[in-house]
Amino acid sequence: MKKKNVINLIKYHVEKNDIQFRNEAIEISRSFNAEGDYQLSEHIVNLLSTTNTLVPQDLQLETRFLKKISNSSISLPLPVSISSDIKGIINAINHNVGINKFLLEGSPGTGKTESVKQIARLLNRQIYGVEFSSLIDSKLGQTNKNIVELFVEINKLPFPEQIIILFDEIDSIALDRINSNDLREMGRATSTILKQFDELSLNIVLIATTNLYSQLDKALSRRFDSIINFDRYSEDDIVEIAERIFNSYAKKFPKIGRNIKLFKKIIRLINPMPMPGDLSNMIKTALAFSDINSDFDYLRRLYGFTDFSLDDVETMKLNGLTVREIEILTGISKSQVSRELKEE
Rank of each mutant, 00 (worst) to 15 (best):
K2P: 08
I7T: 07
I10E: 12
V14H: 13
D18N: 15
Q20K: 10
E24Q: 09
R30D: 05
S31R: 09
S31W: 00
F32W: 11
N33E: 15
A34P: 04
Q39L: 14
Q39D: 13
L40N: 10
S41K: 02
L48I: 09
L54A: 02
L54R: 00
Q57D: 11
Q60E: 13
L61V: 06
L61Y: 14
L66Y: 03
K67Q: 04
S70E: 12
N71D: 03
S73T: 14
L76C: 13
V80Q: 09
V80T: 10
S81A: 07
S84N: 12
K87E: 15
I90P: 09
H95G: 00
V97A: 12
I99V: 14
S107W: 07
K112R: 08
I119G: 01
A120H: 00
I127R: 01
S133I: 06
S138G: 13
G141M: 10
I147C: 01
L150G: 02
F151S: 03
K156V: 00
D168F: 12
I170F: 08
A174C: 09
N179W: 12
D182N: 15
L183Y: 07
G187D: 01
R188T: 02
S191R: 03
T192I: 06
I193L: 15
K195F: 08
D198F: 06
I204T: 11
T209L: 15
T209E: 12
T210W: 05
T210L: 05
Y213W: 07
I228R: 05
N229A: 10
D231S: 08
R232V: 08
V239K: 14
F253M: 04
F253N: 03
K255F: 07
I260F: 12
I266Y: 08
P274C: 05
P274W: 05
D278Y: 05
L287P: 06
A288N: 10
I292E: 15
D295H: 00
D307M: 14
M316P: 11
K317A: 00
N319Y: 13
V323T: 11
T330G: 02
G331S: 03
G331T: 04
Q336D: 08
E343Q: 15
